[in-house]
Design a protein around this nucleic acid. Structure first.
Lengths: 131, 131
DNA sequence: AGAACGCGCTTGAGTTATCAAGCAGTATGA
DNA sequence: TCATACTGCTTGATAACTCAAGCGCGTTCT
């Protein structure tokens, strides 16, 4: 099954970006931090193999063990619960209703001034679009 | 390997009752409430089959999905996290390091989860472009 | 050029979770 | 007595997770 591996090339112009699935989120977190697959494997102390992470990021694995998510949350400095929720696991409090657990507390601590500016700009753009 | 199927007969006499396995705990919870396997299956709205619950209680299944534990926690009226922990999953707080590095340069506190994701995605995009 | 690396990714195999179906045992009622 | 209906339990099949090994591609030496 060859699979036409489609190169995902994001255009800045139309940046539609939906809520994204777990895999995409993990991929974004990793590239944002500038890690390689194997670096993450190391950082998790071999708890998450590079091969596995690849499959995760490409959506081939839908529900990794919470422990895997825990490891990754550590590496990416992002709240564990956020990943759990994205993976489709119920949260302790998430009972019946629909409760809003915030995703990443934007755990990017090493933003450059320039990046920050662009992000803010982009946020402004986003918000201007929301009706 | 023939397997000498060992009947697990719990003794009531010496009740050292310590860490106990998840299975034993679930079994105790159920009998304490006087439910049958099928009643629990019903109570969880078929989320947990009686067959599965049986295997769980007898320790044949070690790490059920968190969602299963959530259902059972509901039925038995015990805290979800307790079951999670018994199942060997790390809890949100169970973290040694506690690195909360979130430098507030980008201190946007009113971000919606969706906005955060899109920003992250955009940042990943930005950084992947810079050579 | 070629060697040597690092990158993401695939694949094969082993383990585990999960369910539908059905089994043996024990009541209870006709 | 037989039938019916429970009880917990087993089993076979399928799907999902997970890893070790290795592949192909692009860089970067030498």
């Amino acid at each position: 099954m060859a699979s036409g591996r489609r190169r995902i090339r994001r255009k800045r112009a139309e940046f539609v970006g939906q809520p994204a699935e777990l895999g995409a989120l993990l991929a974004d977190l990793r590239t944002a931090k500038g890690f390689t697959l194997r670096e993450v494997e190391e950082a998790t102390d071999k708890a998450v193999s590079n091969a596995y992470l690849s499959q995760l990021e490409n959506g081939r694995i839908k529900k990794p063990s919470p422990n895997v998510l825990h490891s990754l949350a550590n590496v990416y400095a992002v709240p564990y619960e956020a990943l759990m929720e994205k993976a489709g696991y119920l949260l302790p409090s998430e009972n019946g209703g629909g409760q809003r657990n915030r995703l990443a507390a934007f755990a990017i601590d090493d933003l450059t001034a320039e990046e920050e500016e662009q992000l803010l700009k982009y946020l402004a753009f986003l918000r201007s679009r929301s009706s």
